[in-house]
Computed example of a mutant assay.
Amino acid sequence: MPSFKVEISDVFPCELERAFKTPMLCDITKVHTGFLFMPKVTHCLDDENWGKIAGSRRVFMAKTFTFKGGEALLDTVIDRQENQHWKIQVNQVQVFTFGIHTFIGEWITTPIDAHTTQVRYQYTLEAKSGLLYPFQWFTAKVLWKIYMRRVMNNIRQLAITKSPYSFD
């Protein structure tokens, strides 16, 4: 079963707590805005425990040329170390991904000073089989990395502007 690890990093000009909480607790529709065949998020359901370990949410996405629209995946918080680390698992993926079925995401924050935070954002993508390996590799190492950068830029902007959280 092939897996692919992708990582990016950036420095956010904001407090550690904002850099840590914003990606998971803000309005997901302002973060996951779509890219190519990756549809934008429209809303979530069953998210009462989101942000807590083992909390999950059903994520719904817009229609694209590769996705009919509707329920797209399940997000689950695997780990949360306050102001340090988030780990989530994305599975039950209904979006076209060349057989990639699970995404394990991590958001790691390290304070540089009172108003500056180092952020590392990484994903491990797991595929069902290697039959489509060249497409899976391209999706993970090129398309997903571009998408992650777009997501990180959205999160950065929300953190800097102190956008309200949707969850505690």
Results as ranks from 00 to 15, higher is better:
residue 97 T to R: 09
residue 63 K to E: 15
residue 153 N to T: 12
residue 44 C to F: 10
residue 139 T to S: 14
residue 16 L to K: 07
residue 122 Q to M: 14
residue 118 Q to N: 15
residue 39 P to K: 02
residue 68 K to L: 09
residue 109 T to P: 03
residue 12 F to V: 09
residue 147 Y to P: 02
residue 56 S to R: 08
residue 79 D to L: 11
residue 166 S to A: 14
residue 115 H to I: 14
residue 81 Q to D: 10
residue 32 H to Y: 15
residue 165 Y to R: 08
residue 56 S to C: 09
residue 21 K to H: 07
residue 12 F to Q: 05
residue 60 F to V: 03
residue 140 A to Y: 05
residue 61 M to H: 14
residue 106 E to R: 10
residue 105 G to E: 14
residue 65 F to I: 11
residue 79 D to N: 11
residue 158 L to M: 07
residue 39 P to F: 04
residue 97 T to S: 12
residue 168 D to P: 06
residue 56 S to Y: 12
residue 161 T to V: 03
residue 147 Y to G: 02
residue 49 N to G: 02
residue 13 P to T: 06
residue 46 D to P: 08
residue 146 I to W: 14
residue 34 G to W: 11
residue 26 C to K: 03
residue 83 N to D: 05
residue 117 T to K: 08
residue 35 F to A: 05
residue 111 P to M: 04
residue 135 F to V: 06
residue 59 V to R: 01
residue 17 E to P: 04
residue 79 D to Y: 05
residue 10 D to A: 13
residue 118 Q to W: 13
residue 25 L to E: 02
residue 58 R to P: 03
residue 65 F to G: 15
residue 141 K to L: 05
residue 153 N to E: 10
residue 144 W to H: 15
residue 14 C to I: 11
residue 155 I to W: 00
residue 147 Y to V: 04
residue 110 T to I: 12
residue 51 G to I: 03
residue 133 Y to T: 04
residue 109 T to C: 14
residue 8 I to S: 04
residue 148 M to N: 01
residue 62 A to E: 15
residue 54 A to G: 09
residue 103 F to S: 06
residue 14 C to D: 02
residue 78 I to E: 02
residue 123 Y to H: 15
residue 59 V to G: 04
residue 145 K to P: 04
residue 151 V to K: 00
residue 1 M to R: 13
residue 57 R to T: 05
residue 117 T to R: 03
residue 133 Y to V: 00
residue 87 K to W: 00
residue 156 R to F: 05
residue 29 T to F: 00
residue 77 V to I: 09
residue 106 E to M: 09
residue 32 H to E: 13
residue 7 E to I: 10
residue 154 N to M: 06
residue 55 G to N: 07
residue 83 N to R: 01
residue 45 L to K: 14
residue 63 K to Y: 11
residue 5 K to F: 13
residue 111 P to A: 11
residue 149 R to D: 13
residue 65 F to E: 14
